[in-house]
Amino acid sequence: MSLSELVSDVAAFRNYMLSERGMADNTVQAYGRDLERYAKWAALVKFEEYLKPALKDLARYVGFLHDEKLAPPSIARHLVSLKMFYRFLRMEERADAATVDLLGSPKLWERVPEVLPPTAVEALITAPQAGDRFFLRDRAMLETLYATGCRASEVVNLKLVDVYLDAAFLKCVGKGSKQRVVPLGRPALAALRAYISGASAEGGRSPTGGADVVFVSKTGRPLTRIHLWALVKKYCKRAGLPSTVSPHTMRHSFATHLLSGGADLRSVQEMLGHASIQTTQIYTHIDRDRLKAIHRQFHPKGQNPPDGPAPGGEKPAAQ
């Protein structure tokens, strides 16, 4: 195999994404730039067996990206681009499923400190156990972080009136007081329902002392961003995850996993709150059903229930 074939395969992949997948030109260009860097590395190290890379080969490539001084989120995006590329090669019967699986290997993703593989995210979310003092609250907070990609400040300031469990979404107030709609998957919905209606002895929200935010302390006071950071660190230690993991790691992981699954950049941008969305424009500029469909299709924990009232009431969140 020659490296000229790699260049040819990258060109074929770009054409496939643009003409057959109908992806936006800027998205195709972003994937193309990432893969051109991969081809540059392959030529530099004379890596000609690119159709059957081993884990050590991919790890060497991640090391090269580190040496290029790329930020962890950028390195994660390069791996997402590579996974999409090898899925294409598998479809063309030029690569096998084992290569695609390698690109989802936890050992490989551990080299990108600000992004966790789905298995590590699951270990963190399930770290709070029944019997813990604030089991229901902490599980719901972690589920919400990953399900929505919200910032730490957005999660601790989340209000009950902005949580629509029956419709499977929440309204989030981000930077500059900009408001956006973010879908909720089934696990997050279940965790939030259990917490909001749960007994205080199990870490449930009732009684609350009158606070209007979702996540509160035992006395009903709102939690702070520092509290959330401390909780993530606590459960990372329990789950055996790196101490560098933070709430923002969950946000990076949320976006990376959506893109890895095939979500388009514009939809992810909307869910992250990077678009200029004013409070009065929520229902005119954002198609909630479209975002819910994107979230349900591509997010690892995004299997939403059918539309309609939730069991036990139209809106469990107290007004």
Rank of each mutant, 00 (worst) to 15 (best):
Y31P: 00
Y31R: 02
Y31L: 03
Y31M: 04
Y31N: 00
Y31Q: 01
Y31K: 02
G32V: 04
G32F: 05
G32M: 07
R33Q: 06
R33M: 09
R33K: 09
R33V: 04
R33G: 09
D34L: 02
D34T: 01
D34W: 00
D34I: 00
D34F: 01
L35F: 03
E36G: 09
E36N: 13
E36P: 04
E36H: 11
E36Q: 13
R37F: 04
R37K: 08
R37L: 11
Y38H: 04
Y38E: 00
Y38F: 15
A39M: 07
A39S: 12
A39E: 12
A39N: 11
K40Y: 12
W41E: 05
W41H: 07
W41V: 05
W41S: 07
A42K: 10
A42D: 10
A42G: 10
A42F: 13
A42Q: 10
A42V: 12
A43M: 15
A43K: 15
L44C: 12
L44Q: 15
L44R: 14
L44I: 12
V45E: 15
K46N: 15
K46S: 14
K46D: 15
K46W: 13
F47C: 05
F47D: 06
E48H: 14
E48T: 15
E48V: 14
E48A: 14
E48I: 13
E48M: 12
E49D: 15
E49G: 13
E49M: 14
E49Y: 14
Y50D: 11
Y50F: 14
Y50H: 14
Y50I: 10
L51S: 09
L51T: 10
L51M: 08
L51F: 12
K52W: 11
K52C: 07
P53C: 13
A54L: 09
A54K: 14
A54T: 08
A54C: 07
L55Q: 06
L55P: 03
K56W: 10
K56P: 00
K56M: 11
K56N: 11
K56G: 06
D57C: 09
D57I: 07
D57L: 07
L58A: 06
L58I: 09
L58F: 03
A59Q: 07
A59I: 03
A59N: 03
R60V: 05
R60Y: 05
Y61M: 00
Y61N: 00
Y61H: 01
Y61W: 13
V62I: 08
V62H: 03
G63L: 08
G63R: 08
G63F: 10
G63K: 08
G63Y: 09
F64C: 01
F64Q: 01
F64G: 00
F64W: 11
F64A: 02
F64V: 02
L65V: 03
L65E: 01
L65R: 02
H66V: 09
H66L: 07
H66E: 07
D67N: 14
D67Y: 08
D67H: 12
E68Y: 06
E68D: 08
K69S: 09
K69L: 03
L70I: 02
L70D: 02
L70P: 02
L70N: 04
A71D: 09
A71P: 04
A71G: 03
A71V: 05
